[in-house]
């Protein structure tokens, strides 16, 4: 059984558990709203800004940490 690379729960897509997978999908789908709102925002800028916002959900923040750690500083 594959484990979620973030929390160790059972993974549903070889990488993330159902919660982190849902957070990943949410993060990707909201990017379009940010692009429409703020033309020129890049994916990197978007995730950095979302990460810094207090309102951002914990699982979303964990996904961003995971993405950032893969991409390097």
């Amino acid at each position: 059984m594959k484990e979620c690379c973030i929390c160790g729960r059972k993974s549903v897509d070889e990488e993330f558990c159902e919660y982190h997978q849902a957070a990943h999908i949410n993060l990707k789908s909201v990017f379009e709203i940010w692009v429409n709102a703020n033309r020129g925002v890049t994916w990197e800028e978007y995730i950095r800004q979302v990460y810094e916002l207090e309102e951002t959900g914990q699982w979303v923040k964990e996904i961003i940490e995971n993405i950032m750690s893969q991409n390097g500083p």
């Binding site: 919660y19 957070a23 949410n26 709102a37 959900g57 914990q58 979303v60």
Partner: peptide, 12 residues
């Protein structure tokens, strides 16, 4: 709690 943890803010 799930809704809170999955929330992505949008700007306005």
């Amino acid at each position: 709690e799930k809704e809170i943890n999955l929330f992505v803010p949008t700007p306005y």
